[in-house]
Write a protein that binds this DNA or RNA. Structure first.
Lengths: 104, 104
DNA sequence: CAAACATATCAATAATTGTTCATATGTATG
DNA sequence: CATACATATGAACAATTATTGATATGTTTG
């Protein structure tokens, strides 16, 4: 079915932008931390030992790319992965990387 | 089945490294160009309008991460994706990104 | 509405990384 | 073995980006 043609240069740039955002250890840790349940900014910062400012900056980038989504609940804002696509993608990639040794 | 635990900080770094390499438009274009058939360095450079040096530098990084693999054939070296994992991953991600609008 | 708390933003710095140009290595051919 | 060709490497530069510290915005509670 849907065989993938070589993406246009524009598409490639958009795709690369997503990869780029996932390509930072701090951001990846934040994403995995929010994978199972929504987490407040403060919780993320404390649990991952990052400054509140840094977490906020990264969340902004992730929000901008619609990789995460935040819900305000009183004073706190709880972030979670934006949708199932994103979480599947993360999990898949993690598996891909674990299974490093290929069949070739 | 295999539910994914939160990766260790080390694993996260390794995973991020892979994402990071995919997160550059030039490298992604090179990868997609080599997706269907092996391509020589010169062919890549000409077809994608990049300097030979630049292509070679990027190929080195991709080789280092075992994302591509090169076969010498006389004077030329033909690069292709390292294995099916890598190509599947690329195609999957491209689909994920195309289907941007989630079910949430 | 002031004080306390949680998150976001701004400006500046430090570190990383993509790109270029010059040159080296390796390979075939006359 | 010299020349031409294809790719790789090294040093330097330019640009991008992660991180920090200080401060602003927004939200609740007394």
């Amino acid at each position: 079915m849907n065989k993938l043609a070589i993406p246009s240069q524009l598409d490639t740039t958009i795709l690369a932008e997503t990869f780029r955002l996932l390509g930072d250890p701090t951001r990846l840790r934040i994403l995995f931390f929010c994978l199972d349940e929504p987490r407040s900014v403060g919780d993320i910062a404390t649990s991952l030992d990052l400054s509140q400012s840094l977490v906020s900056h990264h969340l902004r980038l992730l929000r901008g790319a619609r990789l995460v989504r935040g819900n305000r609940q009183a004073k706190q804002i709880f972030y979670e992965l934006a949708d199932k696509h994103v979480s599947d993608m993360l999990v898949d990639m993690a598996h891909h990387v674990c299974e490093e040794s290929g069949e070739d």
